[in-house]
Design a protein around this nucleic acid. Structure first.
Length: 609
DNA sequence: ATCGAACTTCGTGTTACCAG
DNA sequence: CTGGTAACACGAAGTTCGAT
């Protein structure tokens, strides 16, 4: 302190105030035997409060010193409050004293406010991190789901196309590169039909169709046998709203499985009807030019079919208002071509409907067998959500049996619409449901009403199925099973249950294998609250039927199965995680089926509330 | 390793300004 | 006049870093 201080002391200022009691401050303990520490602690810390409380021994000869054991227990003094010590002398003027007090109060308020804000900020940060984690998990799950859906959809398309394409005609995959050509073509035609009179687009249309046409061959079949699957927006111009976004009109899985009403074949014709005009007395220049085109593309069977039709359909006309009657109308031509495509497709469809196809069946290897017996397929839905599901190839027998039990209950119902089927939300998201099944295991869509015997035999097959490989099931160690490896939420679920178990000191029991008794128990449990028949009335609220709570069943399923079952529910993400786990009755790393059922009902209630 | 100067941080006091 | 606030300055304690 020194000269600088002395020199800078303003007039009237007094020397620094004497020692004041410094508030206790927590600081890291640093033991120093050097007396210099005390020396550096000036009078601010009145007396070194380093005091010996009791003698302790020093551990000697210890090879690796991880803990210092001193002979004394030192109580270190709190770090003296830094900064200028508050003055105790009375100010000269009243005003000064008032200002000092005001300033002190102000700083106190400011510090309090800053502290509050910091606490708030910390809370927000914590909340944000939690939400972010949740979002990341959701994104990952959605990505996986999307990928599996795409795979399933692709597989379905491929398989369906394989069966649909007559005489070995390759199925034109809308998702393939030629789909882009379709898209461009349809857009162009649509724009023409809507009044865009750009004659230059004609060539693009033409070339587009050349691209999408099957490879020409000398022994090409009749034009009507050409199988083309244009995108929905080309043929279904009037029913854009009905487009599920995943199906192609002529290849709509939604229609195939009967959850979407078949659209009329001549939707496109309906658009062009008002523009039709009788042209019996007029010269059909369009047909003439079409003929020329046909000659140009003699190898193109698709175009040949179009123009062949055009010849026979000389009455078709379309007044675009741009071309004159003496000149070949490009717009008319394009519209006519689209019409021909539609007609050829109609014939294709007729052929297809005549084919007796078996029901669509997808087994564990995601193979689809098309055994269509009828064109209309009713998909029975027993449950609004994926509350009980059939697992994948790795489906554990317990969960499978739970689902089977539900199916059994349904099978005993005399309602013909009920069937042994997977309760899916097919009505709302058809492709998703189907491909989910594809991805995770078995899907079976029956076209005919199953008999009770059929149901029972299927049930027996399910029940007798052996559980999957052990690595796919619960390992008893959270985060190590296959499900946990790919789904962080599953890991969290398992960990939470493990934590719950440890806190409640539940003895860790091995994952029980469901027994025959379990099957009966499941049937009883799941019959406690009979599920409404969604197929009969999809809009009917489910609450009345879902109010019943299933008692504890004593039947336990592995945690991953419980997670799979619960996580499929739409409301799974909306319900508090800890609450859900708390609702579950667990024994070790297994969950009581009854508690799962209860939780599902609660999720249902929230969903339909 | 030790020491001391310079620097940093924090608490406090004083003064001026402004609005009610 | 009084309360609230900003700006400035000081003091004390801790930290850093170069010289020895």
């Amino acid at each position: 302190m020194s000269s600088r201080v002395l020199a800078s002391l303003p007039e009237g200022k007094k020397a620094p105030a004497p020692d004041r009691k410094a508030p206790e401050r927590k600081m890291p303990v640093a033991i120093s035997s050097s007396p210099g520490t005390e020396a550096r602690t000036p009078s601010a810390a009145p007396s070194p409060t380093i005091a010996m409380k009791r003698p302790i021994s020093i551990a000697e000869n210890s090879p690796g010193i991880t803990r210092i054991v001193t002979s004394k227990e030192w109580v270190l003094p709190a770090r003296p409050k830094p900064g200028r010590k508050p003055s105790v002398d009375t100010p000269v003027t009243k005003r000064k004293a008032q200002n000092r007090a005001a300033q002190r109060a102000f700083r106190e308020r400011r510090a309090t406010r800053v502290q509050e804000l910091e606490e708030k900020l910390a809370e927000f940060e914590k909340d944000r991190e939690l939400k972010e984690l949740g979002y990341v998990n959701t994104i990952q799950r959605l990505k996986l789901e999307n990928a599996s859906l795409n795979r399933g959809m692709e597989e379905l398309r491929r398989q369906i196309g394989h069966y649909k394409g007559p005489q070995g005609q390759p199925y034109v995959n809308p998702m393939s590169s030629s789909f882009a050509a379709y898209q461009a073509t349809s857009d162009t035609i649509s724009s023409i039909l809507n009044g865009n009179k750009s004659p230059a687009s004609n060539s693009s249309i033409y070339s587009s169709y050349q691209q999408i046409s099957p490879a020409p061959s000398s022994d090409a079949p009749s034009p009507t046998s050409v199988y083309v699957t244009p995108p929905a927006n080309l043929l279904n111009l009037s029913q854009v709203d009905d487009d599920c976004g995943a199906c192609v009109k002529d290849d709509c899985v939604c229609e195939t499985i009967g959850i979407k009403k078949r659209s009329t074949e001549d939707d496109f014709l309906d658009i062009t009807k008002p523009r039709k005009r009788k042209l019996e007395t007029e010269v059909d220049f369009t047909a003439q030019f079409s003929t020329k085109k046909t000659e140009k593309s003699s190898n193109n069977t698709l175009m040949a079919s179009f123009h062949g039709e055009a010849k026979s359909n000389s009455s078709f006309d379309m007044d675009c208002g741009f071309c004159s009657d003496d000149t070949p109308c490009v717009c008319r031509e394009a519209a006519k071509e689209a019409l021909q495509i539609n007609r050829s497709l109609s014939e294709c469809k007729k052929q297809k409907t005549e084919m007796a196809l078996p029901p669509l069946k997808v087994n564990n290897n995601t193979k689809i067998e098309l055994k269509r017996k009828s064109s209309l397929v009713h998909l029975p839905v027993l449950h609004p959500g994926p509350s009980v599901e059939f697992n994948a190839g790795s489906m554990d027998a317990s969960v499978a049996k739970a689902a089977v039990a539900e199916g059994l209950a349904a099978a005993s119902d005399s309602t013909p619409l009920k069937a042994v089927s997977i309760p899916l939300k097919v009505a709302s998201v058809p492709l998703k449901a189907v491909s989910l099944r594809l991805n995770e295991g078995e899907i079976e869509i029956t076209s005919s009403k199953p008999t009770l015997q059929d149901k029972q035999s299927k049930l027996a097959a399910f029940i007798q199925r052996k559980p999957s490989a052990k690595k796919e099931g619960c390992t008893g160690d959270p985060g190590t099973c296959s499900l946990c490896q790919i789904d962080p939420m599953s890991t969290l679920f398992c960990t939470t249950i493990a934590t719950k178990n440890s806190s409640t000191r539940t003895p860790t029991a091995p994952v029980p294998k469901p027994t025959e008794d379990a099957k009966i128990g499941l049937t009883e449990i799941l019959n406690v609250a009979p599920r409404p028949n969604i197929a009969r009335n999809t809009s009917a609220p489910l609450l009345p039927a879902l109010n019943g709570a299933a008692p504890a069943s004593g039947v336990f399923i592995p945690v991953p199965d419980a997670y799979r079952t619960l996580s499929r529910h739409e409301n799974f993400d909306k319900m508090d995680f800890n609450y859900m786990v708390g609702k579950l009755t667990t024994k070790g790393m297994s969950v009581d089926v009854g508690s799962v059922a209860n939780l599902l009902r609660e999720l249902d209630r929230r969903l339909y509330n």
